[in-house]
Amino acid sequence: GPIILETYRAISDYSKNSKREVDLSAGDMLEIIEKNPNGWWFCQCESRRGWVPASYLEPLEGPDEAEEPEPNYEGELYETIKAYTATQEDEFTLQAGEIIEVIHKLLDGWWVVRKGEETGYYPSMFLCKTGLRKEA
């Protein structure tokens, strides 16, 4: 049967930083072709095709974030595969090879992670699930 693409609306202007991306103007209607869990979604908008940040989109229909999983406060163990330096105060600065707990996998690609007593955001693309099990 025909493939029905979901329509999203741009909530703000966005200027692309590479040829793979497309510019957005607030109010643009986009059809989403692929939702990558790293927070970049592949879309088409009229004749343009490319990647846009999911954080700048809202669904045209349906409840907000219907697909987004609930927080899992127990946490899942992930390893950082790339260092990231926080640019905002609610983000984490971590080196590659650190073990953290993921407690909320957000569609915008910024996951809430916990390390010790602290929580903060970290880019999901720099995380890899470990084979480790949490101690009881």
């Binding site: 909530i11 490319g50 954080s55 955001y121």
Partner: peptide, 22 residues
């Protein structure tokens, strides 16, 4: 290739539209 997503983290939501989740 355009089929591959950008290799850098996507931008955070615009500050005025960000939901507080932590």
């Amino acid at each position: 290739s355009i089929k591959e997503p950008p290799q850098n983290p996507p931008p955070r939501p615009p500050a005025d539209l960000r939901r507080k989740r932590l």
